[in-house]
């Protein structure tokens, strides 16, 4: 049996024909594709979390909504907040990048 990556490479390399972008340029469209693929993976991860929550609720003999209704306060809440801030900062990095746009040879043409 092939690994996931091997299977994907075999699939991707079998595609034929030209791929014209809909957006103004190819780079933008490729980034959109990566973002949408990441969105799909987030849905997959959410499904996995949901399964685990339901399993834990079952093991605890309680309704899953009760398990999800846990609200943390104090140190745990602070720890979660910092983790969320960290995640958002990683996603927002490009908005804060201090470097100016360099004029590339291509752009200068």
């Amino acid at each position: 049996m092939k690994s996931e990556a091997e299977a994907l490479i075999e699939l991707i390399s079998s595609a034929r024909g030209a791929r014209k972008p809909s957006l103004a340029n190819r780079e933008t469209e490729e980034v959109l594709n990566i973002a949408l693929a990441t969105l799909i993976e987030l849905a997959v991860a959410n499904d996995r979390i949901d399964r685990l929550e339901r399993l834990v609720a079952q093991l605890r003999g309680e309704d899953v909504s009760a398990l999800r209704d846990i609200t943390y306060e104090g140190d745990v809440a602070e720890e979660r907040q910092q983790a969320t801030d960290g995640l958002l900062m990683r996603a927002m990095r490009i908005m804060l990048d201090p470097r100016e746009e360099a004029v590339t040879e291509k752009a200068a043409d």
Binding site: S3, E6, A24, N33, L36
Partner: peptide
């Protein structure tokens, strides 16, 4: 254009989502 790009991407992701298990389990 944004809808078109997203729709194309979603169509390509169909093949990723079904092609991965097919090639993985092909033997």
């Amino acid at each position: 254009r944004l809808w078109s790009a997203a729709n194309r991407s979603a169509q390509e992701m169909i093949w990723v989502s079904v092609g991965q298990p097919i090639y993985r389990d092909l033997d």
